[in-house]
Simulated assay, not measured.
Amino acid sequence: MNSEQARQAILGVIRAIPAGQVMGYGEVALHAGLPGRARMTAQVLGRNDDPDLPWHRVLRADGRIAMPEGSAGWHAQCQRLRSEGVVVENGRVRRVRADPMQALDAAVWGPTLPGGGRRPG
């Protein structure tokens, strides 16, 4: 995968994060087919110029906002998350679901069977 393909894959995953849910940088990279490339996810977001991209749904692995506390970006991310019903306390989101893409996968592909298989649709 070249760098533009990687960028598009990362952006596609970010666009697919459901409202009211969050993912870590590493999770985004993993779902984009780029395991271990959390920093690449951060770089792609840092260069983003699409105002419709739900960048605010991407957090550090521990649920913290990656921007400096108190900065305009930090406040904007808190506000956007809260507007979607996400509880943000001191710049941190307590993650209820480890992987919001599981819900998306289940909606698209059907429930997971024991052993990891899928029910035929």
Rank of each mutant, 00 (worst) to 15 (best):
M40I: 01
M67G: 01
T41Y: 05
W55H: 05
R92K: 15
Q21E: 14
V13C: 07
A38P: 12
P100Y: 01
T41G: 09
G36L: 02
N2C: 00
I65G: 00
T112I: 10
S71T: 12
R97W: 06
R57E: 02
H75E: 06
G46Y: 13
Q43R: 15
R37V: 00
L30R: 09
V88F: 10
C78Y: 01
D99R: 11
Q43D: 13
T41M: 08
R92L: 01
T112L: 05
M67N: 14
A106Q: 12
G85V: 04
V88R: 12
Q77M: 08
R82I: 09
R119D: 01
G116M: 03
P120G: 12
R57N: 02
G20F: 08
P120W: 09
D105Q: 07
A16G: 10
Q5H: 05
V22Y: 03
L45Q: 10
A103R: 08
V96Q: 15
G63K: 04
A6W: 02
R60P: 01
E89A: 05
T112C: 09
R80K: 15
E89F: 02
R47Q: 15
A107L: 14
P111V: 04
D62T: 07
L53S: 05
A66N: 12
P18V: 02
R64M: 04
S71M: 13
G117W: 14
Q21C: 12
P54Y: 05
A42N: 06
A42I: 06
R118P: 05
P114V: 10
P18T: 09
V22C: 05
P100K: 00
E4L: 02
R80A: 15
V96N: 12
V96L: 15
A66P: 03
G70M: 04
V22S: 02
A19P: 14
